[in-house]
Amino acid sequence: MEQNSTPAAPDPATDPALRPVRGAARCAIAALALAGTAWVARAVWHIRLAVAGQPTSGPLDQGDGVHRPPNALEDSYHLVASVGSAVTAVCVIVFLLWLDRMRDNAKALSGTDPRYGYPWLWLGWILPVVNLWIPRGVVADVHRSVFPERRLPAVVNWWWGLWLAGLAGGVGIIYSDDTDEVIARAYSGVLPLLAADLVIVVAAGAAALMIHTLTTAQREHVAGRAY
């Protein structure tokens, strides 16, 4: 008698290749909410610095290696900036842990290896030039490998466009100026800082929506194959 060689659908209750993603998605969304809140707080302090104006004693960096002591508002901005950077770093790690689980599940469900190898999950964000497309490619591959017949959800492109805008702003997620230089920018022209803050907050919201969208689609697919 002829036997059916089609592989059985993976059962999320018994297949060790499938990893739970619901909790990881919730943690990532919560981390993004905290990161967005931290950048809103940073924007508030940018406004406070602009309204207060530069002290009569001049900028923090007086030149020739001389720095004046910061006032109370400048000190508090240093604290807000430090907390915001720490929260953002945690958010990045939690996001990548969620993406790692989604990649593993996509590989198990599709039976194909990811387009980008495991090292790109981490290196793709920090290597110059390739960080302009590989992270989006990693995320897109998670969806397309399981749903090749579907269009990529638009929120993925919205998220990536906003992320790139934050990078290109020069005062957003990654910038070369130290905190004292950012304070000087707030005194001299706060609008670019506020624009970058807004882009980052909206990007965090788009990332949260993307996580929810991709996670829900994958979980519904797994549930459908189990029956």
Rank of each mutant, 00 (worst) to 15 (best):
E2P: 13
P10R: 11
W120Q: 06
T56K: 03
P10A: 11
W160C: 07
G205V: 15
S76T: 15
A168H: 00
P148V: 12
L79R: 02
L73A: 03
V51R: 12
G172Q: 10
I183V: 09
Q54L: 11
V51G: 02
V129I: 15
V171F: 03
S110E: 09
G161S: 07
W98I: 15
H212N: 02
D75V: 12
R144G: 07
L34K: 10
G117L: 07
L96S: 06
M102H: 08
A89M: 14
D64H: 13
I134Q: 01
A50I: 14
V139A: 15
V138M: 08
R48M: 02
G189T: 13
W133F: 14
L167A: 05
R68D: 00
E74L: 05
G189D: 15
R68W: 02
Q3N: 03
I200L: 14
A226L: 13
W125R: 03
L109P: 03
Q3H: 03
G224F: 12
W39R: 07
V21H: 01
N105A: 08
R219G: 00
A223N: 13
V142E: 06
V202N: 11
A13W: 12
A208N: 08
A106R: 03
Y118L: 05
V171N: 01
P192K: 07
Q218M: 13
A8C: 08
A186I: 00
V80T: 12
V40R: 11
I29H: 01
P20V: 13
S57I: 04
P10F: 10
A8N: 12
L73W: 02
R185N: 04
P7K: 05
N4I: 14
G169A: 11
A72Y: 05
V21A: 08
G205H: 11
A108T: 08
T216W: 10
P59I: 05
G124I: 05
F95N: 13
E2R: 12
E149V: 01
V155R: 15
A24Y: 09
A165L: 14
L109C: 05
L167D: 04
G84N: 08
A30P: 01
V201G: 11
R150C: 09
G111D: 08
D178M: 03
L123D: 01
I47M: 12
L191N: 11
A9F: 10
R103Y: 00
A165R: 07
V90H: 04
G58F: 06
D178W: 06
G58M: 06
V130E: 02
Q54A: 05
T6A: 02
T112K: 15
R150I: 02
